[in-house]
Nucleic acid binder design. Structure first.
Lengths: 130, 130
DNA sequence: TTTCTTGCAAAACATTTGCAAATCG
DNA sequence: CGATTTGCAAATGTTTTGCAAGAAA
């Protein structure tokens, strides 16, 4: 723990791509964007680097109930909502009611330190189509 | 839509296993439990049947941010919380504050008809170990 | 017959791992 | 040097798909 930050060329490039992306890219998205910037890293390297960057908390890995992981450079606490129709991900910035968390904690006996919540709904465009 | 229910031997056996299981089994769990009951269905059949049973709403498919889908015969509305340490899944039966949903809906422009929320926390046993 | 379902194997997909080569300190 | 990281390919785990055979309506 409290290790010295070791940003290699690859890790730095990957971090930059995630920081520049505001659409929660997947590993495949990241590799594609790296290519347009002239970087051609192996899959293994990209996954390794993403894991490293997640461990040192420069990025967050989002598991939103799809089959893929997404990555987010926004590290302050916030939640996500996923469109059940098109898969689009939006950030939820409304605070979670504290007393609800307390109730959930009491009922389930789970400790909730950093709430991490994934919601589902229909995004605006998809709602119109229905 | 409004199709006639067609429960084949396989589908019925799979439904029974899910109904008897209260631990949100994965497809692999279900296949294993079918075997102890003397059923040996192909993987494809089990996945097909689970999709069918989900479509006719006899069960629910849970995507809880792991790499696998889990299945649940409890079809009334409730949420889930997953232990970040051991992966154990608990049901959240506390109602979600309606005004919070309204706020989320306003901020994100998402329509939330049937709230489906996945939370993360530390289960009781894992919390003790920390 | 026509439609749906099953079984099996192969394919698809995201991710991890093993290992040799390269790099860093 | 020793420790870490990279690149590549192969392996893994979950789920889907194609297709022929079987069952049901």
């Amino acid at each position: 723990m409290a290790q010295k930050l070791n940003l290699t060329v690859q890790r730095r490039a990957i971090l930059e791509v995630v920081q520049e992306s505001h659409d929660h890219p997947t590993a495949a998205d990241i590799i594609e964007r790296l290519r347009t910037k002239g970087f051609n890293f192996a899959y293994g390297t990209v996954y390794n680097s993403l894991r490293y960057l997640t461990e040192v908390e420069l990025i967050k890995e989002l598991k939103l109930g799809e089959s893929v992981s997404r990555y987010d450079a926004r590290t302050e606490e916030h939640q996500h909502i996923v469109c059940t129709s098109c898969g689009h991900v939006e950030e939820v910035l409304v605070d979670i009611p504290q007393e609800w968390l307390v109730q959930v904690s009491e009922q389930t006996k789970y400790t909730i330190q950093h709430p991490h919540i994934v919601m589902e709904g229909l995004c605006e465009q998809c709602a119109i189509k229905h």
